[in-house]
Design a binder for these strands. Structure first.
Lengths: 255, 255
DNA sequence: TAGTGGTCTAGACCACTGC
DNA sequence: CAGTGGTCTAGACCACTAA
């Protein structure tokens, strides 16, 4: 493959390098030639190479470190299967504490979650779901999750005070099966859920924690849980890098 | 707001323009100042402006036409609600021909679908789902969908020959409710479905049809349908621009 | 013809890494 | 210190649109 005149050179640089990554010329973990060398190879200037590599960065194919070079990422998408992940048996499998831990375990990955619990006034979008008067507080469980050592997900759960108190959800560790198991134990199980998936660029703080380029994308998932009385009992805002996750939803159909 | 030294200038250009688009300084449909004028306003070179605007393009916030300028997009996300879209009553609501038409109608949008039916050897990933011997043909229903005049979705459905023949699925128009209604009429209703959602950059041909920048993202959804005997009866590969769609999944839970 | 964005270059300066 | 990528500029040429 060589540079053609019709398609922008920086796109061709990206196309060729992407192809070489996919066919194994540059294996996961290996380092690409430096930009000056690539410029020489393709007969273009360094800014053109830089722009081409930027495309691969934005796709999550490569990882760049200052002074180091450009390395090919190991991509192992974590399967997130709904509603399996909310079944009590799955959440508690292998003694896992919640769905994310069980998912990581299912593909042989270690996992780790930092939890921070506090009482806060929720964002307007969340307050609206609960029809909460302005300024009222909720319990927020803020979780930062790692798959192995890779930051893989942010999740902020908002729970009405009364429910959090009944289910004892203001401690960091909610025990086997996590939050939903405790709500069920409290006699108020979740009976219905919905998730709305959008895709956007990460906020700078999100990008910093998730070790992402700002040009990459995240799934922004808003999940709402309802109990048998059709009252919302929990809303979680998830942020997941798109290149690390694969979302599967399954459902029966009555035809 | 003005240019600060710490954050890359082109990012700040994007931040400021994004903010002004969101707060209404530049309303949907309006045109941004030309790049030379923006360069003057921010005191940076034109390539820096161009790089900043490229970020907004990749986010789907603006639309660029050669010789015209940069215009702010009207964004009206089409809600895609599962499993509602597969309920026969919804698919046939307002006489709609299938789920996409009903969804567009639900937000007051006209819709239009071009259908092309043929027999082809399916992609390997699809053949694998059916455990189909190599080289065997399936019926492919290729649909190109428009919301109003905006190209909004590509969908290729693959159906085993025997099922397509029984349900009369080799004509372009499958009648009220679409493919699934015909399968049900044929006595072989779909009883279970799954969708796997991934995000990627569009192929050049996809970008051309969907009127997208290559730097934008698409949802690539693989849907599989099974009948009561747990045999796969249909697989569809969907491609949807992320900035035009919002995916919602709902499900009951047994606690 | 004038104005728009698309792209490329050569050179530069910077921050960061590892030796 | 040398090597890496991050970024910016001034100027240039091109393709396209509208008048």
């Amino acid at each position: 493959m060589s540079i053609q005149p019709t398609r922008a050179e920086y796109r061709q640089v990206a196309d060729i390098l992407r192809h070489e990554i996919e066919d194994g010329t540059y294996a996961p973990g290996s380092t690409l030639p430096s930009e000056p060398r690539l410029a020489e190879r393709f007969g273009v200037s360094r800014p053109t190479i830089n722009k081409g590599v930027a495309i691969l960065r934005s796709e999550g194919l490569v990882h760049v470190e200052r002074g180091q070079g450009v390395t090919v990422r190991h991509i192992r998408a974590i399967p997130r299967v709904v509603p399996r992940r909310f079944e009590r048996g799955f959440r508690e499998s292998n003694g896992a504490r919640g769905a994310f831990a069980a998912e990581c375990a299912s593909v042989g990955l270690d996992s780790h979650t930092d939890v921070e619990v506090s009482r806060v006034v929720p964002p307007a979008a969340v307050a609206a779901i609960f029809a909460l008067p302005g300024g009222m507080q909720m319990v927020r469980r803020r979780r930062r999750m790692y798959a192995g050592t890779t930051p893989a997900q942010l999740a902020d759960s908002y729970i009405p005070l009364r429910i959090a108190e009944g289910a004892d959800l203001e401690t960091a560790d909610t025990g086997p099966g996590g939050t939903f198991s405790r709500m069920a134990d409290d006699g108020n199980p979740v009976t219905r859920m919905a998730e709305t998936v959008r895709v956007r660029t990460p906020e700078p703080e999100e990008a910093a924690f998730l070790d992402m380029e700002e040009e990459q994308r995240v799934y922004a998932i808003t999940r709402t849980s309802w109990d048998a009385t059709r009252a919302a009992v929990e809303v979680t805002l998830h942020v997941l890098p798109t290149h690390l996750h694969e979302l599967t939803y399954e459902w029966p159909l009555d035809g």
